[in-house]
Design a protein around this nucleic acid. Structure first.
Length: 500
RNA sequence: GUCCGGUUCGUCUAGGGGUUAGGACACCGCCCUUUCACGGCGGCAACACGGGUUCAAAUCCCGUACCGGAUACCA
Protein backbone atom coordinates (compact mmCIF):
# COMPACT_ATOMS: atom_id res chain seq x y z
CA UNK A 1 0.00 0.00 0.00
CA UNK A 2 1.46 3.34 -0.94
CA UNK A 3 1.24 6.00 1.69
CA UNK A 4 -1.00 8.96 1.08
CA UNK A 5 -0.72 11.99 3.30
CA UNK A 6 -2.39 15.33 3.17
CA UNK A 7 -1.76 18.85 4.31
CA UNK A 8 -5.11 20.35 5.21
CA UNK A 9 -5.00 24.02 6.10
CA UNK A 10 -8.09 26.09 6.72
CA UNK A 11 -7.96 29.29 4.70
CA UNK A 12 -8.45 31.73 7.53
CA UNK A 13 -5.15 33.54 7.12
CA UNK A 14 -1.81 33.26 5.41
CA UNK A 15 0.41 30.20 5.61
CA UNK A 16 2.08 30.50 8.96
CA UNK A 17 5.21 28.88 10.21
CA UNK A 18 3.46 26.08 12.10
CA UNK A 19 1.40 25.07 9.09
CA UNK A 20 4.45 25.29 6.88
CA UNK A 21 6.28 22.89 9.17
CA UNK A 22 3.29 20.52 9.08
CA UNK A 23 3.30 20.72 5.29
CA UNK A 24 7.03 20.04 5.25
CA UNK A 25 6.75 16.95 7.44
CA UNK A 26 3.89 15.60 5.37
CA UNK A 27 5.86 16.25 2.23
CA UNK A 28 9.01 14.63 3.58
CA UNK A 29 7.08 11.62 4.77
CA UNK A 30 5.39 11.18 1.42
CA UNK A 31 8.67 11.40 -0.45
CA UNK A 32 10.50 9.23 2.03
CA UNK A 33 7.96 6.46 1.65
CA UNK A 34 7.44 6.91 -2.05
CA UNK A 35 3.87 7.99 -1.41
CA UNK A 36 1.62 10.86 -2.39
CA UNK A 37 1.44 14.31 -0.88
CA UNK A 38 -2.03 15.79 -1.18
CA UNK A 39 -3.51 19.14 -0.40
CA UNK A 40 -6.97 19.81 0.93
CA UNK A 41 -8.31 23.24 1.68
CA UNK A 42 -10.63 23.02 4.67
CA UNK A 43 -12.97 25.82 3.83
CA UNK A 44 -16.10 24.59 5.53
CA UNK A 45 -16.29 27.59 7.81
CA UNK A 46 -17.77 29.94 5.24
CA UNK A 47 -17.75 32.84 7.64
CA UNK A 48 -14.03 32.79 8.17
CA UNK A 49 -12.62 31.32 4.99
CA UNK A 50 -11.46 33.68 2.30
CA UNK A 51 -10.16 33.24 -1.19
CA UNK A 52 -7.34 35.55 -0.38
CA UNK A 53 -6.20 33.24 2.35
CA UNK A 54 -6.33 30.30 0.01
CA UNK A 55 -4.23 32.21 -2.47
CA UNK A 56 -1.73 33.20 0.16
CA UNK A 57 -1.42 29.65 1.43
CA UNK A 58 -0.91 28.35 -2.09
CA UNK A 59 1.73 31.00 -2.66
CA UNK A 60 3.54 29.99 0.49
CA UNK A 61 3.47 26.33 -0.47
CA UNK A 62 4.64 27.12 -3.95
CA UNK A 63 7.55 29.10 -2.59
CA UNK A 64 8.49 26.23 -0.31
CA UNK A 65 8.29 23.89 -3.26
CA UNK A 66 5.57 21.57 -2.01
CA UNK A 67 3.41 20.91 -5.02
CA UNK A 68 0.58 18.45 -4.36
CA UNK A 69 0.69 15.19 -6.30
CA UNK A 70 -2.99 15.28 -7.10
CA UNK A 71 -5.57 17.94 -7.66
CA UNK A 72 -6.34 20.18 -4.71
CA UNK A 73 -9.47 19.18 -2.83
CA UNK A 74 -11.74 21.92 -1.57
CA UNK A 75 -13.64 20.54 1.35
CA UNK A 76 -16.68 22.73 0.78
CA UNK A 77 -17.28 20.94 -2.52
CA UNK A 78 -17.95 17.74 -0.61
CA UNK A 79 -20.58 19.11 1.74
CA UNK A 80 -23.33 16.98 0.20
CA UNK A 81 -21.39 13.81 0.83
CA UNK A 82 -20.68 14.84 4.38
CA UNK A 83 -24.35 15.52 4.93
CA UNK A 84 -25.31 12.17 3.44
CA UNK A 85 -22.90 10.45 5.78
CA UNK A 86 -24.46 12.16 8.79
CA UNK A 87 -27.91 11.16 7.62
CA UNK A 88 -26.77 7.59 7.12
CA UNK A 89 -25.49 7.48 10.68
CA UNK A 90 -28.80 8.92 11.86
CA UNK A 91 -30.66 6.28 9.88
CA UNK A 92 -28.58 3.54 11.46
CA UNK A 93 -29.23 4.87 14.94
CA UNK A 94 -25.58 5.75 15.46
CA UNK A 95 -26.45 9.40 15.60
CA UNK A 96 -29.48 11.29 16.83
CA UNK A 97 -31.32 14.53 16.28
CA UNK A 98 -30.71 17.14 18.93
CA UNK A 99 -33.60 19.60 19.03
CA UNK A 100 -31.96 21.78 21.65
CA UNK A 101 -32.16 25.33 20.35
CA UNK A 102 -28.85 26.56 19.09
CA UNK A 103 -27.18 28.94 21.50
CA UNK A 104 -25.81 31.98 19.76
CA UNK A 105 -22.04 31.83 19.90
CA UNK A 106 -20.75 34.44 22.31
CA UNK A 107 -19.13 37.33 20.49
CA UNK A 108 -15.41 37.99 20.72
CA UNK A 109 -13.89 35.58 23.17
CA UNK A 110 -15.38 32.27 22.14
CA UNK A 111 -12.39 30.48 23.55
CA UNK A 112 -12.66 32.11 26.94
CA UNK A 113 -16.37 31.47 27.10
CA UNK A 114 -15.81 27.80 26.42
CA UNK A 115 -13.13 27.55 29.04
CA UNK A 116 -15.38 29.34 31.48
CA UNK A 117 -18.26 27.01 30.83
CA UNK A 118 -16.01 23.98 31.21
CA UNK A 119 -14.64 25.27 34.47
CA UNK A 120 -18.12 25.92 35.79
CA UNK A 121 -18.90 22.27 35.21
CA UNK A 122 -15.98 21.37 37.47
CA UNK A 123 -15.25 18.52 35.12
CA UNK A 124 -18.45 16.88 36.37
CA UNK A 125 -20.43 17.24 33.20
CA UNK A 126 -22.22 14.14 32.09
CA UNK A 127 -21.58 13.95 28.37
CA UNK A 128 -24.68 11.80 27.84
CA UNK A 129 -27.34 13.94 29.45
CA UNK A 130 -28.85 15.24 26.26
CA UNK A 131 -32.65 14.90 26.59
CA UNK A 132 -33.00 14.03 22.93
CA UNK A 133 -30.42 11.28 22.99
CA UNK A 134 -32.91 8.56 23.82
CA UNK A 135 -35.88 10.00 22.01
CA UNK A 136 -37.71 7.26 20.11
CA UNK A 137 -37.36 7.19 16.36
CA UNK A 138 -41.02 8.00 15.89
CA UNK A 139 -40.95 11.00 18.16
CA UNK A 140 -37.79 12.26 16.60
CA UNK A 141 -39.15 11.82 13.10
CA UNK A 142 -42.35 13.56 14.07
CA UNK A 143 -40.56 16.59 15.46
CA UNK A 144 -38.37 16.79 12.39
CA UNK A 145 -41.38 16.46 10.13
CA UNK A 146 -43.05 19.28 12.05
CA UNK A 147 -40.17 21.47 10.98
CA UNK A 148 -38.36 21.71 14.30
CA UNK A 149 -34.71 22.50 13.67
CA UNK A 150 -32.17 19.99 14.88
CA UNK A 151 -28.49 19.26 14.86
CA UNK A 152 -27.23 15.72 14.35
CA UNK A 153 -24.97 14.40 17.05
CA UNK A 154 -22.99 11.22 17.15
CA UNK A 155 -24.26 8.82 19.79
CA UNK A 156 -21.18 7.99 21.79
CA UNK A 157 -21.47 4.82 23.90
CA UNK A 158 -21.87 5.13 27.66
CA UNK A 159 -18.82 3.14 28.56
CA UNK A 160 -15.57 2.38 26.88
CA UNK A 161 -12.71 4.33 25.46
CA UNK A 162 -11.10 5.32 22.23
CA UNK A 163 -7.51 4.34 21.71
CA UNK A 164 -4.91 4.70 19.03
CA UNK A 165 -1.20 4.29 18.73
CA UNK A 166 0.19 7.68 17.86
CA UNK A 167 3.41 7.46 15.91
CA UNK A 168 4.89 10.27 17.94
CA UNK A 169 3.14 10.29 21.31
CA UNK A 170 2.57 6.57 21.70
CA UNK A 171 -0.60 4.93 22.94
CA UNK A 172 -3.37 7.46 23.44
CA UNK A 173 -6.49 6.55 25.32
CA UNK A 174 -9.54 8.54 26.21
CA UNK A 175 -12.56 7.49 28.15
CA UNK A 176 -15.88 7.99 26.42
CA UNK A 177 -16.94 9.96 29.47
CA UNK A 178 -14.51 12.64 28.35
CA UNK A 179 -16.00 12.92 24.91
CA UNK A 180 -19.27 14.62 24.21
CA UNK A 181 -21.83 13.51 21.67
CA UNK A 182 -20.21 15.63 19.03
CA UNK A 183 -22.24 17.50 16.49
CA UNK A 184 -21.91 16.11 12.99
CA UNK A 185 -24.34 18.38 11.23
CA UNK A 186 -25.37 21.82 12.29
CA UNK A 187 -29.05 22.68 12.53
CA UNK A 188 -28.68 24.62 9.29
CA UNK A 189 -27.47 21.46 7.60
CA UNK A 190 -23.86 22.50 7.55
CA UNK A 191 -21.37 19.66 8.14
CA UNK A 192 -18.83 20.21 10.86
CA UNK A 193 -15.09 19.79 10.88
CA UNK A 194 -14.67 16.33 12.40
CA UNK A 195 -17.25 14.78 10.11
CA UNK A 196 -15.83 16.52 7.05
CA UNK A 197 -12.28 15.50 7.84
CA UNK A 198 -13.16 11.86 8.33
CA UNK A 199 -15.25 11.69 5.17
CA UNK A 200 -12.58 13.38 3.10
CA UNK A 201 -9.71 11.39 4.53
CA UNK A 202 -11.61 8.24 3.68
CA UNK A 203 -12.47 9.46 0.21
CA UNK A 204 -8.90 10.56 -0.44
CA UNK A 205 -7.63 7.24 0.91
CA UNK A 206 -5.34 8.92 3.36
CA UNK A 207 -3.12 6.41 5.13
CA UNK A 208 -1.27 8.71 7.53
CA UNK A 209 -2.58 11.81 9.20
CA UNK A 210 0.30 14.03 10.23
CA UNK A 211 -0.86 17.20 11.97
CA UNK A 212 -0.33 19.38 15.01
CA UNK A 213 -0.91 17.94 18.45
CA UNK A 214 -3.64 20.49 19.03
CA UNK A 215 -5.74 17.91 17.16
CA UNK A 216 -5.10 15.12 19.66
CA UNK A 217 -8.61 15.28 21.11
CA UNK A 218 -10.13 15.65 17.67
CA UNK A 219 -8.48 12.40 16.76
CA UNK A 220 -10.44 10.59 19.45
CA UNK A 221 -13.64 12.10 18.11
CA UNK A 222 -12.73 11.19 14.58
CA UNK A 223 -11.98 7.63 15.58
CA UNK A 224 -15.48 7.45 16.98
CA UNK A 225 -16.79 8.47 13.56
CA UNK A 226 -14.60 5.91 11.81
CA UNK A 227 -15.94 3.25 14.14
CA UNK A 228 -19.53 4.30 13.54
CA UNK A 229 -18.83 4.09 9.83
CA UNK A 230 -17.17 0.71 10.20
CA UNK A 231 -13.98 1.89 8.55
CA UNK A 232 -10.57 1.45 10.07
CA UNK A 233 -8.86 4.74 10.78
CA UNK A 234 -5.55 5.80 9.26
CA UNK A 235 -2.31 5.97 11.21
CA UNK A 236 -1.88 9.16 13.19
CA UNK A 237 1.23 11.15 13.97
CA UNK A 238 0.82 14.34 15.96
CA UNK A 239 3.44 17.03 15.86
CA UNK A 240 4.69 19.19 18.71
CA UNK A 241 3.68 22.81 18.42
CA UNK A 242 5.82 25.79 17.54
CA UNK A 243 5.61 28.43 20.23
CA UNK A 244 6.40 32.13 20.60
CA UNK A 245 9.52 33.17 22.56
CA UNK A 246 7.50 33.36 25.78
CA UNK A 247 6.36 29.79 25.09
CA UNK A 248 2.90 31.10 24.43
CA UNK A 249 0.87 30.73 21.30
CA UNK A 250 2.45 31.99 18.12
CA UNK A 251 -0.27 34.01 16.48
CA UNK A 252 -0.83 36.25 13.55
CA UNK A 253 -2.61 38.74 15.71
CA UNK A 254 0.05 39.04 18.35
CA UNK A 255 3.18 38.46 16.35
CA UNK A 256 2.28 39.70 12.91
CA UNK A 257 4.27 39.16 9.77
CA UNK A 258 7.09 37.27 11.42
CA UNK A 259 4.97 34.12 11.34
CA UNK A 260 3.95 34.40 7.68
CA UNK A 261 5.76 32.43 5.02
CA UNK A 262 5.45 35.17 2.43
CA UNK A 263 7.38 37.47 4.74
CA UNK A 264 10.42 35.25 4.36
CA UNK A 265 10.03 34.98 0.64
CA UNK A 266 9.78 38.75 0.39
CA UNK A 267 12.69 39.29 2.76
CA UNK A 268 15.01 37.43 0.45
CA UNK A 269 15.13 34.05 2.11
CA UNK A 270 15.95 30.98 0.09
CA UNK A 271 13.21 28.39 0.37
CA UNK A 272 15.86 25.70 0.72
CA UNK A 273 17.33 27.43 3.75
CA UNK A 274 13.98 28.01 5.35
CA UNK A 275 12.94 24.41 4.80
CA UNK A 276 16.16 23.29 6.38
CA UNK A 277 15.49 25.51 9.37
CA UNK A 278 11.88 24.36 9.67
CA UNK A 279 12.87 20.72 9.54
CA UNK A 280 14.70 21.05 12.83
CA UNK A 281 11.81 22.57 14.70
CA UNK A 282 10.49 19.44 16.31
CA UNK A 283 12.50 16.85 14.48
CA UNK A 284 16.08 15.76 14.26
CA UNK A 285 18.12 13.23 12.39
CA UNK A 286 20.21 12.54 15.50
CA UNK A 287 23.37 13.67 13.81
CA UNK A 288 25.59 16.66 14.25
CA UNK A 289 25.02 17.84 10.71
CA UNK A 290 23.06 21.09 10.34
CA UNK A 291 22.82 21.66 6.64
CA UNK A 292 20.66 19.24 4.71
CA UNK A 293 19.50 19.40 1.15
CA UNK A 294 15.89 18.52 0.44
CA UNK A 295 17.05 15.15 -0.86
CA UNK A 296 18.92 14.45 2.36
CA UNK A 297 15.95 15.56 4.42
CA UNK A 298 13.70 13.22 2.46
CA UNK A 299 16.12 10.39 2.92
CA UNK A 300 16.66 10.92 6.65
CA UNK A 301 13.12 11.78 7.63
CA UNK A 302 11.23 9.47 9.90
CA UNK A 303 8.30 9.75 12.27
CA UNK A 304 10.52 8.32 15.03
CA UNK A 305 12.70 11.41 14.89
CA UNK A 306 9.82 13.72 15.74
CA UNK A 307 9.89 15.20 19.23
CA UNK A 308 7.18 15.25 21.81
CA UNK A 309 8.02 18.64 23.23
CA UNK A 310 7.14 21.97 21.70
CA UNK A 311 9.78 24.13 20.06
CA UNK A 312 10.22 27.86 20.42
CA UNK A 313 10.51 30.07 17.38
CA UNK A 314 12.91 32.62 18.74
CA UNK A 315 12.86 36.28 17.83
CA UNK A 316 12.86 39.69 19.49
CA UNK A 317 10.45 42.22 18.01
CA UNK A 318 12.35 45.10 19.60
CA UNK A 319 15.72 44.19 18.07
CA UNK A 320 15.82 44.78 14.30
CA UNK A 321 18.74 42.43 13.94
CA UNK A 322 16.74 39.65 15.53
CA UNK A 323 13.40 40.31 13.93
CA UNK A 324 13.24 36.58 13.23
CA UNK A 325 14.95 33.48 14.56
CA UNK A 326 18.76 33.78 14.63
CA UNK A 327 19.19 30.33 13.34
CA UNK A 328 16.93 30.92 10.38
CA UNK A 329 18.96 33.98 9.51
CA UNK A 330 22.22 32.13 9.91
CA UNK A 331 20.92 29.23 7.86
CA UNK A 332 19.95 31.55 5.04
CA UNK A 333 23.34 33.28 5.08
CA UNK A 334 25.05 29.93 5.14
CA UNK A 335 23.11 28.81 2.06
CA UNK A 336 23.84 32.06 0.27
CA UNK A 337 27.56 31.87 0.76
CA UNK A 338 28.10 28.16 0.38
CA UNK A 339 25.59 26.78 -2.08
CA UNK A 340 26.77 26.07 -5.60
CA UNK A 341 26.80 29.31 -7.53
CA UNK A 342 24.79 27.84 -10.35
CA UNK A 343 21.95 27.09 -7.98
CA UNK A 344 22.01 30.55 -6.51
CA UNK A 345 22.16 32.46 -9.78
CA UNK A 346 18.48 32.25 -10.75
CA UNK A 347 17.51 33.82 -7.45
CA UNK A 348 20.04 36.59 -7.79
CA UNK A 349 18.90 37.24 -11.31
CA UNK A 350 15.32 37.59 -10.13
CA UNK A 351 16.38 39.89 -7.33
CA UNK A 352 18.46 42.13 -9.59
CA UNK A 353 15.70 42.19 -12.16
CA UNK A 354 13.20 43.29 -9.58
CA UNK A 355 15.59 46.07 -8.56
CA UNK A 356 16.18 47.00 -12.20
CA UNK A 357 19.85 46.16 -11.86
CA UNK A 358 19.91 43.21 -14.19
CA UNK A 359 21.69 43.24 -17.54
CA UNK A 360 21.55 40.36 -19.98
CA UNK A 361 25.32 40.53 -20.44
CA UNK A 362 25.59 39.01 -16.98
CA UNK A 363 24.83 35.62 -18.42
CA UNK A 364 26.52 36.30 -21.71
CA UNK A 365 29.62 38.43 -22.36
CA UNK A 366 30.06 39.40 -18.71
CA UNK A 367 29.24 36.01 -17.27
CA UNK A 368 32.71 35.37 -15.87
CA UNK A 369 32.89 38.82 -14.32
CA UNK A 370 29.39 38.49 -12.89
CA UNK A 371 30.04 35.14 -11.30
CA UNK A 372 33.29 36.32 -9.82
CA UNK A 373 31.60 39.38 -8.40
CA UNK A 374 28.72 37.43 -6.92
CA UNK A 375 31.06 34.90 -5.41
CA UNK A 376 33.03 37.71 -3.84
CA UNK A 377 30.19 39.69 -2.35
CA UNK A 378 28.01 36.80 -1.24
CA UNK A 379 30.49 35.89 1.48
CA UNK A 380 29.06 38.52 3.79
CA UNK A 381 25.45 38.57 2.66
CA UNK A 382 22.50 37.26 4.60
CA UNK A 383 19.59 37.51 2.21
CA UNK A 384 18.90 37.80 -1.49
CA UNK A 385 17.93 41.40 -0.85
CA UNK A 386 21.51 42.21 0.03
CA UNK A 387 22.54 41.73 -3.58
CA UNK A 388 20.42 44.65 -4.67
CA UNK A 389 20.92 46.83 -1.61
CA UNK A 390 24.40 46.42 -0.20
CA UNK A 391 25.59 45.00 -3.49
CA UNK A 392 24.12 47.81 -5.57
CA UNK A 393 27.40 49.60 -6.24
CA UNK A 394 28.71 46.60 -8.12
CA UNK A 395 25.93 46.82 -10.66
CA UNK A 396 25.03 50.48 -10.88
CA UNK A 397 26.47 53.98 -10.62
CA UNK A 398 23.39 54.98 -8.76
CA UNK A 399 24.16 53.88 -5.23
CA UNK A 400 23.93 55.53 -1.85
CA UNK A 401 26.70 56.48 0.53
CA UNK A 402 26.38 55.37 4.11
CA UNK A 403 26.83 58.59 6.14
CA UNK A 404 28.65 56.72 8.90
CA UNK A 405 31.08 55.30 6.36
CA UNK A 406 31.66 58.72 4.82
CA UNK A 407 32.38 60.18 8.23
CA UNK A 408 34.65 57.37 9.30
CA UNK A 409 36.60 56.86 6.10
CA UNK A 410 36.48 60.18 4.23
CA UNK A 411 35.73 63.39 6.06
CA UNK A 412 37.87 62.31 8.98
CA UNK A 413 40.84 62.56 6.60
CA UNK A 414 40.41 65.79 4.59
CA UNK A 415 43.57 65.08 2.57
CA UNK A 416 41.73 62.25 0.87
CA UNK A 417 39.66 64.77 -1.01
CA UNK A 418 42.73 65.48 -3.12
CA UNK A 419 44.58 62.23 -2.69
CA UNK A 420 41.88 59.96 -4.06
CA UNK A 421 41.51 61.82 -7.39
CA UNK A 422 45.30 61.81 -7.48
CA UNK A 423 45.25 58.08 -6.98
CA UNK A 424 42.94 57.89 -9.95
CA UNK A 425 45.48 59.72 -12.07
CA UNK A 426 48.18 57.37 -10.86
CA UNK A 427 46.02 54.35 -11.74
CA UNK A 428 45.35 55.79 -15.15
CA UNK A 429 49.02 56.20 -15.98
CA UNK A 430 50.30 53.02 -14.32
CA UNK A 431 47.64 50.74 -15.72
CA UNK A 432 48.17 52.02 -19.18
CA UNK A 433 51.20 49.74 -19.13
CA UNK A 434 50.37 47.23 -16.38
CA UNK A 435 47.59 44.71 -16.11
CA UNK A 436 44.85 45.74 -13.70
CA UNK A 437 45.33 42.82 -11.33
CA UNK A 438 45.21 42.57 -7.56
CA UNK A 439 48.95 42.13 -7.38
CA UNK A 440 49.72 45.21 -9.44
CA UNK A 441 47.04 47.27 -7.76
CA UNK A 442 48.55 46.44 -4.42
CA UNK A 443 52.01 47.67 -5.36
CA UNK A 444 50.70 50.85 -6.95
CA UNK A 445 48.55 51.70 -3.93
CA UNK A 446 51.40 50.89 -1.55
CA UNK A 447 53.81 53.14 -3.39
CA UNK A 448 51.24 55.92 -3.44
CA UNK A 449 50.61 55.51 0.29
CA UNK A 450 54.30 55.79 1.10
CA UNK A 451 54.63 58.93 -0.98
CA UNK A 452 51.82 60.53 0.98
CA UNK A 453 53.28 59.39 4.25
CA UNK A 454 50.01 57.91 5.40
CA UNK A 455 48.74 54.51 6.37
CA UNK A 456 47.55 51.99 3.83
CA UNK A 457 44.25 51.69 5.68
CA UNK A 458 43.44 55.34 5.21
CA UNK A 459 43.74 55.14 1.44
CA UNK A 460 42.13 51.74 1.16
CA UNK A 461 39.13 52.59 3.29
CA UNK A 462 38.67 55.95 1.67
CA UNK A 463 38.63 54.20 -1.67
CA UNK A 464 36.26 51.59 -0.29
CA UNK A 465 33.72 54.17 0.65
CA UNK A 466 34.04 56.03 -2.63
CA UNK A 467 33.80 52.84 -4.66
CA UNK A 468 31.05 51.05 -2.76
CA UNK A 469 29.41 53.61 -0.49
CA UNK A 470 30.05 51.49 2.58
CA UNK A 471 32.63 50.84 5.26
CA UNK A 472 32.45 47.10 5.00
CA UNK A 473 32.93 44.50 2.33
CA UNK A 474 35.42 42.16 0.74
CA UNK A 475 39.13 42.73 0.35
CA UNK A 476 39.72 46.14 -1.22
CA UNK A 477 42.05 44.71 -3.82
CA UNK A 478 39.28 42.43 -5.03
CA UNK A 479 36.90 45.33 -5.11
CA UNK A 480 39.22 47.40 -7.28
CA UNK A 481 39.53 44.54 -9.69
CA UNK A 482 35.88 43.68 -9.82
CA UNK A 483 34.72 47.28 -10.14
CA UNK A 484 37.17 47.60 -13.02
CA UNK A 485 39.57 50.35 -13.95
CA UNK A 486 37.13 52.67 -15.71
CA UNK A 487 34.60 52.73 -12.93
CA UNK A 488 37.37 52.96 -10.33
CA UNK A 489 38.75 56.09 -11.97
CA UNK A 490 35.35 57.67 -12.23
CA UNK A 491 34.41 56.96 -8.62
CA UNK A 492 37.75 58.03 -7.18
CA UNK A 493 37.40 61.34 -8.94
CA UNK A 494 33.80 61.86 -8.00
CA UNK A 495 33.16 64.54 -5.42
CA UNK A 496 29.59 63.45 -4.75
CA UNK A 497 30.31 61.80 -1.44
CA UNK A 498 32.27 64.83 -0.29
CA UNK A 499 29.36 67.12 -0.90
CA UNK A 500 26.76 65.20 1.03
C1' G B 1 -12.01 22.57 36.74
C1' U B 2 -11.27 18.01 33.83
C1' C B 3 -8.58 15.22 30.20
C1' C B 4 -4.08 14.81 27.40
C1' G B 5 0.97 16.01 26.58
C1' G B 6 5.77 18.12 27.78
C1' U B 7 10.37 19.74 30.77
C1' U B 8 18.86 18.80 28.64
C1' C B 9 22.83 25.62 27.80
C1' G B 10 19.11 32.05 26.18
C1' U B 11 17.22 29.22 21.45
C1' C B 12 17.29 24.64 18.12
C1' U B 13 19.00 20.02 19.63
C1' A B 14 22.44 15.04 20.64
C1' G B 15 22.58 11.47 24.37
C1' G B 16 18.77 7.85 27.23
C1' G B 17 21.68 3.49 33.64
C1' G B 18 28.65 4.55 34.40
C1' U B 19 29.98 10.72 29.12
C1' U B 20 35.01 15.97 31.19
C1' A B 21 26.61 15.79 29.20
C1' G B 22 28.24 16.61 22.51
C1' G B 23 26.91 20.00 18.28
C1' A B 24 24.64 24.43 16.08
C1' C B 25 22.77 29.52 16.57
C1' A B 26 23.24 33.75 19.64
C1' C B 27 26.67 36.18 22.96
C1' C B 28 31.89 37.32 24.58
C1' G B 29 37.32 37.18 23.73
C1' C B 30 41.62 36.41 20.65
C1' C B 31 43.67 35.82 15.70
C1' C B 32 43.50 37.04 10.36
C1' U B 33 42.98 41.91 7.87
C1' U B 34 43.06 48.07 4.63
C1' U B 35 37.34 47.63 6.79
C1' C B 36 33.77 44.04 8.13
C1' A B 37 28.94 41.29 8.84
C1' C B 38 33.58 36.05 6.03
C1' G B 39 37.08 32.66 8.09
C1' G B 40 40.19 30.29 12.27
C1' C B 41 40.84 29.42 17.56
C1' G B 42 38.86 29.76 22.37
C1' G B 43 35.20 31.03 26.26
C1' C B 44 30.40 31.53 28.85
C1' A B 45 26.26 28.42 29.37
C1' A B 46 21.84 23.03 30.62
C1' C B 47 19.80 17.60 32.60
C1' A B 48 12.79 21.72 36.65
C1' C B 49 12.26 19.94 41.90
C1' G B 50 11.52 15.93 45.64
C1' G B 51 11.40 10.91 46.68
C1' G B 52 12.23 5.78 45.18
C1' U B 53 14.76 1.53 42.43
C1' U B 54 20.09 0.56 41.68
C1' C B 55 26.83 -0.56 43.25
C1' A B 56 25.64 3.61 39.92
C1' A B 57 20.03 7.93 37.74
C1' A B 58 20.18 13.47 33.37
C1' U B 59 18.63 8.52 31.70
C1' C B 60 13.84 3.86 34.93
C1' C B 61 9.35 4.54 38.55
C1' C B 62 6.21 7.77 41.62
C1' G B 63 4.93 12.55 43.19
C1' U B 64 5.23 17.98 42.91
C1' A B 65 5.92 22.42 40.25
C1' C B 66 5.75 24.89 35.93
C1' C B 67 4.58 25.22 30.67
C1' G B 68 1.46 23.82 26.61
C1' G B 69 -2.86 21.68 24.12
C1' A B 70 -8.00 20.33 24.24
C1' U B 71 -12.60 20.98 26.32
C1' A B 72 -17.86 24.98 20.02
C1' C B 73 -24.08 23.80 16.09
C1' C B 74 -14.82 26.97 14.85
C1' A B 75 -11.21 24.63 12.04
Amino acid sequence: MTTRVRFAPSPTGYLHIGSARTALFNYLYARNTGGKFLLRIEDTDLARSTEESTRSILEGLEWLGFAPDEEIVFQSNNADKHRATALKLLEEGKAYRDFTPKVAPSDANVKDAIKERARANQGEKNMRDNPYRELSKDESDAKAAAGEPFAIRLKVAETGKTAFEDQVYGLQERDYAETEDLVLLRSDGHPLYNLAVVCDDIEMEITHVIRGQDHLTNTHKQILIYEALGISPPTFAHLPLIMAPNKGKLSKRKHGEVVSMTTYRDAGFLAAAFRNFLAFLGWSASEEQEIYSLEELVQKFSLEGIHRSNAVFNFSPDDPRKWTDDKAQWMNAEYIRTMPLAGLMPFIKAELKAAKLWRDEYEDDDKAWFEKTIDLIRQRFFTLKDFSSQGRSYFSEDFDFDPAAVAKNLTKFPDLKNWLPELADRFESEFAKLDYTEENIESVVKAFTEEKGTKLGVIMNGARTLLTGTAVGPSMLSIFEVIGLDRTLMRLRSQVAWNL
